[in-house]
Write a protein that binds this DNA or RNA. Structure first.
Lengths: 217, 217
DNA sequence: TTGTGCATGTGGGATATGCAACGGAAAGGG
DNA sequence: CCCTTTCCGTTGCATATCCCACATGCACAA
C-alpha cells in the first residue's frame, strides 16, 4: 500500500486521490509488492498486468539453449503482461527480473475492459493513465525496432546513440547499462561491437569514456 | 462519415452507438478520410493520432540514402502517430503509406487525455477502445522485437514462422507479404535470406509453396 | 594480501551475410 | 494482346560479423 506522498509520484494512479486509490485496489483486485534485485517479478503465466511504480526491471527472453536476451528495460511507469508482450515462440521463456529494488502493482487485465457500475469515474481515470503508459511502451518498442532494423553494427550503434543524445538533449550522454549488455541490446556479438566502437572512435565520430559518450560533428 | 453498418465493424468506435459516434466526431475534432493505394496518409508532422478503420497501410522509414524499410504493418485497428512511434533519428523520415484503399480516422491526441465535462461516458468508452488498440500495437511491436533480436537469419526466420504458425493455429500458414518484403521485415539481405530458406527446405525443417509454408516436426 | 567474478579491450581464423548481377516467371496495366 | 514492373531463384565474390581465446583492470569478499 502506498503512502500519500508515494501516491503523488505514481504513474498509474496519477490524478487519483487517496480515498479513490484505496477503493480501486479492491475493485481491480490489485496486488502490490516490493522486489529486491535479481528477484523474479513475473513469468508470464498469469493474465495480470504489472506496472513498475518505482525502481528498475528488465524483461528478458531465455531461449532453448539458455541464452538470455534483454527485450525491454522497464523503469518507473513501465508496464508488462502477457497481453502486452507476445509469449515467445515455444521453447523460449519470458521473465521480468528486478534490477534495482522495485515497487510493482499487478492488476487483473480483463477488469480494465469491464465497465463497472459503481466506480465509473475512478475507473476511467485509471484507464486513461493506463493508456498513457501503454502508449509510452509502444513508443519505446518503436525506438527498439528502429535500432534493430538497421543492417550493420555501425548503423545500429549510431541509431541508438542518436536516440540517447536526443533524449538527453545533448551530444553527451551516458549508457543506461554496460557495454556487454549494449551488445545484447542491439543483438550482436560483443567483440564485433567493440571493434566497431574502436573504429568509430578512431574516425572521430564518437568520443567515449567508460559509459559516457559524445557524438562529434 | 461511417454508415451504421460500418460503425459496427469499427475498432475505434466499438460499443458506441450512432448518435454518440456523431457527437464524438465533433468533440474530438475527428477527421475521416479515404485513401487509395500508394497515397501518403501521414508524415508525422502533426500531433494527430490515426486509426486504420479498414484497409491496409504500412509505416515506413526512409533513411538519408533513400532506403525504405517497413517498420510496421497496419491493418484494421492499426494505430499510428507521433506520440506512438519515436520520430526516427535526424535525417530519417517516417511515413504512413496506403497499400490497399483505407478508411482512416484522425483524432487530436491531447483531447484523449483531457476530461471533458459533458460527454464523459462516451469519452471513457472511446479511451477504453483506444487502450485496446494501443495494447495490440504494443503486442505487435513485441513480436517484431522478438524476431529482430535473433542473431542469425535462420533464427529470425524460424522465430517469425513460429509466430505465424501460432497465429494460424496450424503448422501451415501463409505469409502476409512477398518474400522480398519478408527480407526487409527481418532486416536482412534478400538473397542471403533465400539461401537460408533453401537450406531450411533441404534439411526438411520447412516445406514451402509460394507464400504458403509448413513447419515440419 | 590473494582470489574470484565481471566488464572491458584486442586479435586470429572461420563463416555467415551482404552486394551485384542475371534470367525467368508472374502479375498488372494499357 | 504486348509491355512494364515486380517477384522469385540462384551464383560468385568480398567482407562484416561471429566464435573462441586471452590479457587487463576493477570491485568486492575472504
Amino acid at each position: 500500500m502506498l503512502s500519500e506522498q508515494e501516491l503523488e509520484k505514481s504513474p498509474l494512479f496519477h490524478d487519483i486521490n487517496y480515498q479513490d486509490y484505496r477503493e480501486i485496489l479492491t475493485c481491480f483486485q490489485a496486488v502490490q509488492r516490493v522486489f529486491r534485485a535479481d528477484e523474479l517479478i513475473y513469468d508470464f503465466s498469469s493474465d495480470a498486468v504489472g506496472v513498475v511504480e518505482r525502481g528498475q526491471a528488465s524483461l528478458i527472453r531465455i531461449d532453448e539453449e539458455g541464452v538470455a536476451t534483454v527485450l525491454e528495460d522497464l523503469g518507473a511507469g513501465g508496464v508488462f503482461g502477457k497481453s502486452l508482450a507476445f509469449a515467445g515462440s515455444t521453447g523460449d521463456s519470458l521473465e521480468v527480473i528486478c534490477r534495482h529494488s522495485c515497487d510493482v502493482v499487478f492488476l487483473d487485465y480483463s477488469h480494465i475492459f469491464t465497465l463497472c457500475g459503481n466506480a465509473c469515474h475512478r475507473h476511467s481515470v485509471l484507464v486513461q493513465n493506463m493508456l498513457r503508459l501503454v502508449a509510452d511502451k509502444a513508443q519505446a518498442l518503436s525506438r527498439r525496432v528502429d535500432v534493430l532494423s538497421r543492417r550493420s553494427i555501425r548503423e545500429k550503434l549510431l541509431c541508438y546513440f542518436r536516440q540517447l543524445s536526443q533524449q538527453a538533449d545533448s551530444r553527451t550522454f551516458t549508457l543506461p547499462f554496460s557495454l556487454s549488455t549494449l551488445a545484447d541490446y542491439i543483438a550482436t556479438d560483443r567483440s564485433a561491437m567493440m571493434r566497431e566502437l574502436k573504429r568509430l572512435r578512431e574516425e572521430g565520430v564518437v568520443r567515449s569514456d567508460g559509459r559516457q559518450f559524445t557524438l562529434r560533428q
